[in-house]
């Protein structure tokens, strides 16, 4: 929790039933208390996993659909959606449950869009300075 409170990105690792999602929920509560609900995004790749942690799908958060566009095309799509841009700019913490279900391309796309949506002085940081918290199963690493 010290790492989390310090604003570092955290990947929470553990086997099934080890309490990753429980820990995630505690972090969510702290983040919401600190930044407000609008600044905390809670996501997962699949709808069921998202419902499990009380959030939304990654595609829903970013306004993506199933088209296999490259990351620059998705960035252009985001620029055409002012509400999405505002939402991403406001986000201070992004939680992703069941992280290994997403492929590297999706993760990279997510990082690319968030970095380029961030204020100029934060674009050198991963995800535009937005704190990332992810859970994944132990064998994945």
């Amino acid at each position: 929790m010290t790492m989390f409170d310090g604003g570092r990105n955290i990947a929470v690792l553990g086997r099934a039933g080890s309490g990753k999602s429980v820990l995630l929920r505690v972090m969510m509560l702290r983040a919401v208390r600190r930044w407000g609900r609008g600044a905390v995004a809670i996501t997962a790749l699949s709808g069921t996993a998202a419902v499990g942690v009380g959030g939304q799908t990654i595609h829903s958060l970013f306004g993506w659909d199933v088209r296999p566009l490259n990351k620059n095309d998705w960035l252009e799509q985001a620029w055409g959606k002012p509400i999405l841009c505002e939402k991403l700019n406001r986000a201070r913490v992004v939680f992703v449950d069941e992280a290994p279900t997403m492929a590297a391309s999706l993760f990279t796309r997510m990082a690319h869009v968030m970095r380029h949506e961030a204020p100029a002085h934060l674009r050198g940081r991963p995800f535009g300075g937005c704190q990332m918290v992810r859970t994944l199963e132990e064998p994945s690493l």
């Binding site: 790492m3 570092r8 990105n9 955290i10 990947a11 929470v12 690792l13 553990g14 086997r15 099934a16 039933g17 080890s18 309490g19 990753k20 820990l23 992280a99 290994p100 997403m102 492929a103 590297a104 391309s105 999706l106 993760f107 990279t108 990082a111 940081r125 991963p126 995800f127 990332m132 992810r134 994944l136 132990e138 994945s140 690493l141």
Partner: peptide
């Protein structure tokens, strides 16, 4: 680009460097 998410450079820069850490939860 469709490798496991933790094998990409973006993951390493976010969680294995100055900006982040990997925390392990043990027990069941």
């Amino acid at each position: 680009m469709n490798s496991w998410v933790f094998r990409c450079a973006t993951w390493r820069s976010a969680f294995h460097g100055h900006f982040g850490r990997v925390a392990c939860v043990s027990g069941g």
